[in-house]
Simulated assay, not measured.
Amino acid sequence: MSHRASLLQAATSFCESFASQKPPNEIFSHFTSTESNILVIEHGLPRLAPFIGREFRGNDGLQKYFQTISECLSYKNMHFSNYVVDAEVRKVSVRGEATFTWSSTGQSWDEVFTYVLEFDDNDKVEKYEVWADSGAAYLASQGLLT
């Protein structure tokens, strides 16, 4: 299998496990075993939500990010498309869509977001970056989404 195909398969497998809301340990199994290389960041201003604009590093950071997300949000109808593989730098960019609900207010919004996944030599995620609608998340958290 080519490097491009193996990266595409790894990215697709990760995204499908997240979209189908697999247990955390199954999602974590897609990440590198070299703990010092794990970095999760959802880009945006930190004051907008507790999971935005902060670097989550290592296994502890990975677990804290997903725990924080699950405490704040639920989601449904998540799906991914437009996978772009750069085998030379071992990165995959992917477009996602889902309906998110802020748990404490019950406010929901439809969102398009982007992941950029960077992989190690074993096709395991090292860096997980998210670009999403942080404004909608903030408004929903405040009960102001209309």
Rank of each mutant, 00 (worst) to 15 (best):
R57Q: 13
R57L: 12
G58M: 02
G58Q: 11
G58L: 10
N59C: 00
L62D: 00
Q63R: 10
Q63M: 08
K64L: 07
Y65W: 13
Y65I: 06
F66T: 06
F66Y: 14
Q67P: 00
Q67T: 13
Q67M: 12
T68R: 07
I69Q: 09
S70E: 11
E71P: 10
C72G: 10
L73A: 03
L73N: 08
S74H: 13
S74C: 04
Y75T: 00
K76T: 08
K76F: 01
N77P: 01
M78S: 10
M78Y: 01
H79L: 10
H79E: 11
F80C: 02
F80R: 03
F80G: 07
S81I: 04
N82Y: 03
Y83M: 02
Y83C: 06
V84R: 09
V85N: 02
V85L: 06
V85A: 05
D86E: 07
D86W: 04
D86A: 07
E88I: 12
E88W: 13
E88S: 14
V89N: 13
R90M: 08
V92L: 01
V92Q: 04
S93F: 15
R95L: 15
G96S: 07
G96I: 05
G96A: 12
E97R: 09
A98C: 12
T99Q: 11
T99F: 00
F100K: 03
T101L: 01
T101D: 08
T101P: 06
W102Q: 08
S103P: 06
S104D: 05
T105G: 13
T105C: 05
Q107L: 11
Q107T: 12
S108R: 01
S108C: 11
D110T: 10
E111Q: 15
V112G: 10
F113D: 02
T114G: 14
Y115L: 12
Y115A: 04
Y115Q: 03
Y115D: 12
V116S: 04
V116D: 06
V116G: 00
V116K: 01
V116R: 00
L117F: 14
L117C: 11
L117G: 05
E118W: 11
E118C: 13
F119K: 02
F119Y: 06
